[in-house]
Design a protein around this nucleic acid. Structure first.
Lengths: 136, 136, 136, 136
DNA sequence: GTGGTCTAGACCACC
DNA sequence: GTGGTCTAGACCACG
């Protein structure tokens, strides 16, 4: 277990996104401690510097707070967490709709296609994993 | 006019995507001629090398055909165009649903949010333009 | 109440500065006793080790004297206090002027800007609190 | 020439500040190209990675724009430059006044002290250079 | 040649 | 133990 990363985007960025999702989902609760830089590095199979950058980025996003000599923690402010949830939601929805619009799909087509995929995924949602977005 | 590009992804890749969308949408019809490499380069405000790569990439994807000394044309095979349409649709829908799932949103929440955004965008869909996805 | 500290500088250093200011201002009079290491630690919400270092540092600066088994006291020498006052003043003024010079501001601009801010702060000087200086 | 850096703050941060000042002062004009990452690294006597970080930070501050494969340039938007000037000015003035207030100096004392130093510096302003702020 | 990412390994200060 | 900075050197993709 270690290097299941998408080649088209920086590792640090994929990790930032992954952690954000875990926070939004609730897998990482408010105030909870993240693994240490070194620990997370081993766990993810990357260099500690990369994790350092991830944590720095998360802190800049105000999603995480780091206490000197103690560690890095999910922000304790519930308002920020709600806000993050909404931001991420909006960002993804907007991006998706923009793409679909640019390809000329109508709202009804979009909803319909979505329904179809949702039904199909009903029993095997856990299989969904990696999708490449960038260039190869 | 020229450099409205996202800093987080290669320009050539953004152009590939943009052209694919135009083809799927029908703005670029089957068999239609694309601008010359040089012309497109000026039009997009980028280096001709970049456009060259874009066309090569599109050719590799089999959505475009280059005829020696004549130019580059949208593929004339309607089957391929339908296929492209489906591919792109699937890719985007799947990516979107995966993201939403990873954030813990339920199908009903997803559909609901989508509806909300679709309503809001009704009159100003043309305003939608740039969205950043990658790191800044 | 406890951790209103700037992330970009060591806590112990911020505390040293804060206490120096209190002494210069007169909030802590000559010969006055400082809280015990443990008491101060609780009061500031930091580790006792950190306070220990603060007191050691203050002692090294000769603005504080530690009497075995009795506690830590502001130095009783009024000359030293005057000197401290001048040192701090000079240090800050010099730093400020240097910065302004490096940004190309002329003496008149500096004085003018200062006046403006002083007027504006007249009624709410107590609101001023945190300013970050270091990296984020 | 190479390592005239303050030990108490990160090199990358000192460089960020230095460049900001040069821009505000006008030594680096709008749209002007900065040295390449590697060039600047040699010039400053630090590792290219450090410069990379500096440029990234400046870009995030919207003070600099980087064009892929071409280089890094001072932002061309004059409004942003004015804004930067005001921001930096405000930041320094505010920090200075806050410090002086906390030490109990009155507005008149502050202005007076400033005047005194300004007069003294009249002929040797070029001597002013390094000042340490952080802990040693 | 440009910026950008990553690794490896070291050192530091803080708690 | 923690996070943070820096170096050295490599590799990559873009223009």
């Amino acid at each position: 277990m270690g290097d299941e990363f998408n080649a088209s985007q920086p590792i640090y960025f994929q990790l930032v996104q992954r952690i954000c999702k875990q926070i939004v989902k609730g897998d990482l609760g408010a105030g909870e401690k993240l693994p240490s830089v070194r620990g997370m590095a081993i766990q993810a199979g990357v260099n500690p510097n990369t994790i350092q950058r991830v944590y720095t980025e998360l802190e800049r996003m105000d999603v995480v707070e780091t206490k000197r000599g103690q560690g890095t923690f999910v922000t304790a402010k519930p308002e920020r967490l709600r806000q993050l949830r909404d931001e991420l939601m909006a960002e993804h929805v907007l991006a998706f709709l923009t793409d679909m619009h640019q390809m000329g799909f109508s709202p009804v087509e979009i909803i319909q296609a979505l329904r179809e995929y949702l039904d199909r995924q009903d029993g095997n949602s856990h299989k969904v994993q990696q999708r490449g977005r960038g260039p190869e």
